[in-house]
Design a protein around this nucleic acid. Structure first.
Length: 419
RNA sequence: GUGGGUGUGGCGAAGUGGUUAACGCACCGGAUUGUGACUCCGGCAUUCGUGGGUUCAAGUCCCAUCACUCACCCCA
């Protein structure tokens, strides 16, 4: 039986990797401009980190974690998201010690145990940023505008930025109770999962896709009516900064993020014409998170974007141009005696940064030329008995078909002059 | 976890119970000597995901199973 890749994982073939390089490059370059530095954390962590950080009531912790016991009977989990790890590293390495704002980004694989489908995999990749150490609303706006700008730079269009405020430890519980009171009236009409949500996380009822639930939720009181005196102005202020930076946004009072740690500002960036897995980027503020995993109470905000989804969207729109490298020279040695000087020449070409290959496979000359043609090389260098004896090379232009025998040493000397 | 769709050579794809399983691309060989592309000729699935069943006869019907895929939940 042939061994196949585990469901929900992907081999990223060379042609595809070029696309990854393109968006990774854009991400890294813009990170520099915005002042974010890369951080690399382990791909697995103690399970406890995610349970405490992401939250026990979330789907991620409840049913989507890749958890196993290692040989020392420790419970280990493949990271399902990046924020908890970054915060852990922030605390563990005492980065808070200098009392400065820390701006970090990360890129890499995440793991969630769920049924794969278009734009959703068990192993997927995120680029994410975290800004730790400030609760100033301008940082909310910075993070959001960075996210929108980055997607734009990558080439995505037709995106919608949705923002909301989900409250803080002061007003969230109050609003939560308001929602419970409201939805209790409609228990019958709500779907079974929403009835469960009533106890675990009533905010998520607002986000339910079920038709009846949507109808009921339309009438539900919104967070904005219940924010406390800190959160209200904070949210207003964030919007003011966004306006100042010309960032277009839509307010969505029913936007609820699936992770427990979010406070205040929450946002998502959605691809309009990508129905199923339209969320390309999601983020928000998480002021209690660092404290909850054992650090001092440092506020934070960040976002994560799904690389596969970005690539999917860009590919559908044919954004990627063909960046395949064109072969400068393809060297053909006609006989065994010619192979040594041919290989020596190959090295010379590469020493001068030419993209060159030598024929490994061809049987007869005709065949070798055919491979040369297939390789897409601009020119072919032929070394046969005559050339060997004359100390020359035959340079054939594959486009015009014209060829010219020139002195080997002269050819090499010209290489030096050209580059 | 739940529901739908699909499974024919490396890829795409005909075939809707009856002789040798179309075709296109790719690939391989040839059209004699050290010249590719274009053209021409030839080759390339004892077998239709797997296992069972119905039938005189199955890629075509039935059942099971596996795989892939899409959607729901949820999310990136």
């Amino acid at each position: 039986m042939e061994i196949r890749k585990p469901k929900g994982t992907n081999d990223i073939l060379p042609e595809e990797v070029r696309k990854w390089h393109a968006i990774e490059k854009t991400a890294m370059e813009l990170s520099d401009v915005y002042g974010y530095q890369e951080i690399r954390t382990p791909i697995f962590e103690h399970t406890e980190l995610f349970v405490r950080g992401v939250g026990e009531t979330t789907d991620i912790v409840g049913k989507e974690m890749y958890t196993f016991e290692d040989k020392g009977n420790r419970s280990i989990t493949l990271r399902p998201e990046g924020t908890a790890s970054v915060c852990r590293a922030f605390v563990e390495n005492k980065l808070y010690g200098d009392n400065q704002v820390h701006k970090l980004y990360y890129m890499g694989p995440m793991f969630r145990y769920e049924r794969p489908q278009k734009g959703r995999y068990k192993q997927f990749h995120q680029y994410g940023v975290e800004l730790l150490g400030s609760n100033h609303p301008v940082t909310d706006a910075e993070i959001i505008s960075f996210a929108t700008e980055l997607l734009k730079k990558m080439g995505l269009i037709d995106l919608e930025l949705q923002i909301n405020t989900v409250g803080c430890p002061v007003c969230k519980p109050v609003y939560r109770q308001v929602l419970i009171d409201f939805f209790s009236e409609y228990k019958e009409g709500l779907c079974p999962t929403c009835n469960e949500r009533m106890e675990k996380n009533p905010l998520r009822i607002l986000d339910c896709k079920n038709k009846e639930c949507i109808e009921i939720a339309k009438e539900a009181p919104s967070m904005t009516e219940h924010v406390c005196e800190d959160c209200g102005p904070h949210y207003e202020s964030v919007k003011g900064y966004l306006d100042a930076a010309d960032v277009d946004y839509t307010e969505n009072p029913r936007l609820v993020r699936g992770l427990d740690y979010y406070t205040n500002t929450a946002f998502e960036i959605i691809a309009k014409d990508f129905a199923a897995q339209g969320t390309v980027c999601g983020g928000g503020r998480y002021n209690g998170l660092v404290g909850s995993i054992g650090g001092k109470d440092v506020p934070g905000i960040g976002f994560a974007m799904g690389m596969e989804r970005i690539i999917l969207l860009l590919s559908e729109k044919n954004i990627f141009k063909d960046s395949k490298k064109i072969l400068d020279y393809y060297i053909i040695a006609l006989g065994e005696l010619e192979e040594i000087p041919a290989f020596a020449l190959l090295k010379k070409l590469r020493d001068h940064s030419y993209f060159a290959e030598i024929d490994y496979t061809g049987k007869n000359f005709k065949n070798k030329l055919k491979y040369a043609d297939k390789s897409g090389a601009k020119s072919v260098i032929i070394i046969g008995e005559n050339e060997r004896k004359n100390k020359t090379v035959m340079i054939k232009n594959m486009e015009t078909g014209q060829q010219e025998e020139i002195d080997l040493q002269l050819f090499i000397n010209n290489l030096k002059e050209e580059r």
